[in-house]
Design a protein around this nucleic acid. Structure first.
Lengths: 224, 224
DNA sequence: ATACGGAATACTGTATACAAAAAGAATTTT
DNA sequence: AAAATTCTTTTTGTATACAGTATTCCGTAT
């Protein structure tokens, strides 16, 4: 049974995609009326969508003031990753402790798939495929952790982080390889139900991701 | 220079207060039209406020379906505290590491104030005063941690937790005393710039708060 | 009686008109 | 010419009317 999507939902997804894909760049101004004209809807669903995006940290605004796509500072970015690190650590730990046997079996076969994809995409040119399977890896952990609150918060952190990555980090093969390795370490700890190690490896993984993102942004600023 | 508040801001605060104070009970249905009439405004700012409250987890709704004040399950509550624990831990650790000398001095004198308040309110009957100063204690830590992302997320977690406390936990003197003691332990670690201990003590503190809340809710269900 | 189906109704979603505030342009003042 | 001040324009905030969907109520059939 499918439910027809409301206009605001469609608008929300479109705007979000445009922001995350860099169509609307960080710092760019958004005007309700223009967006409404472009998407051929009234301002009402546009405003609803923008409100939601604001609470997710993708746009910024003050009452009666203009609306801008969020532009994150280097400190902001560190803050995001730092926060995400402890949350991913908790998720990994809970996953190791709370997964059912079925879920672990499932997770195991997903890992095999992942290996196959990486094997096939040896050149790692297909950034989108890699990014997708990496996101799926993390999502699986959130779900088997059985903590809904944590899952939702981590999912909402995903947006700003995608925003960061869309600006920097187009192709950094070294990082892609180490990501795969780090995922292996986390997964192995979860499968062995070793919560402590899973937590530690997950935290380290996010820390490394931060270092890579930070480095990429620095390089970009230095060259651009 | 003060800015006149927009209607939606006022409405948001009113609805939020009513939810957190238990005027609108968990599970209760909210009707836009009625709220608009009660507050003597149009539906527009009501809808804006409800959308915001939804993204903060205080109300729940599906498209074209009714709106309800969030009713948290026991598992939800555990999830909230579990998540908050690691985040408070991180905040305490960062506070110990990143506070300036001035901030530490400030924090120290706040602690003295806190002791005075508790001394004066020996009977601990004035629940509101105690709750306020406890919240302030945590807020101070968020600020001196220097991590804005973490602070905002912790602040948004505060709402559902207040919701939990408003239903259970009216007066539990034992818990109030141990809260003071636990706060002392966290503070002392921060003042000594011992990040590891601060983190550990903060995590334990939230875990204990969860145990108390969970117990109170169980008792309430058993009796009520 | 109970289950099903179809109006009636109650509420949320959307469009649009109008109000108010902020940003920008033009004008005056120094 | 620079700064301050008014006024114009642009843009967001709010009210309201209308559209569309879910829920309720009632009648009918089994």
């Amino acid at each position: 049974m499918i439910r027809p999507k409301t206009i605001r939902e469609v608008v929300y997804e479109q705007l979000k995609n445009n922001i995350l894909a860099g169509v609307y760049r960080p710092g760019e101004r958004l005007i309700e009326t223009n967006l409404a004209q472009d998407l051929e809807v009234s301002r009402t669903p546009i405003r609803d969508a923008l409100n939601k995006l604001e609470s997710e940290g993708l746009v910024e605004t003050l009452p009666h003031r203009r609306i801008f796509v969020t532009k994150l500072s280097r400190k902001n970015i560190l803050d995001f990753y730092q926060t995400r690190a402890v949350m991913e650590g908790l998720a990994a730990k809970l996953a190791a402790e709370n997964a059912t046997e079925e879920e672990l079996a499932d997770f195991h076969s997903f890992l095999n798939e992942m290996e196959v994809v990486f094997e096939k995409e040896k050149e790692l040119t297909n950034y989108k495929v890699i990014a997708e399977i990496n996101n799926e890896f993390h999502s699986k952990i959130y779900y088997i952790s059985k903590n809904e609150v944590l899952r939702k918060m981590l999912e909402s952190l995903q947006n700003p982080i995608t925003l960061i990555r869309s600006t920097a980090w187009t192709k950094n093969s070294t990082r892609k390889y180490s990501t795969l390795n780090e995922h292996r370490l986390i997964a192995s700890a979860i499968l062995q139900r070793d919560g402590t190690t899973a937590q530690k490896k997950a935290e380290e993984h996010i820390f490394n991701a931060w270092k890579a993102a930070d480095q990429a942004l620095e390089d970009e600023n230095a060259s651009g």
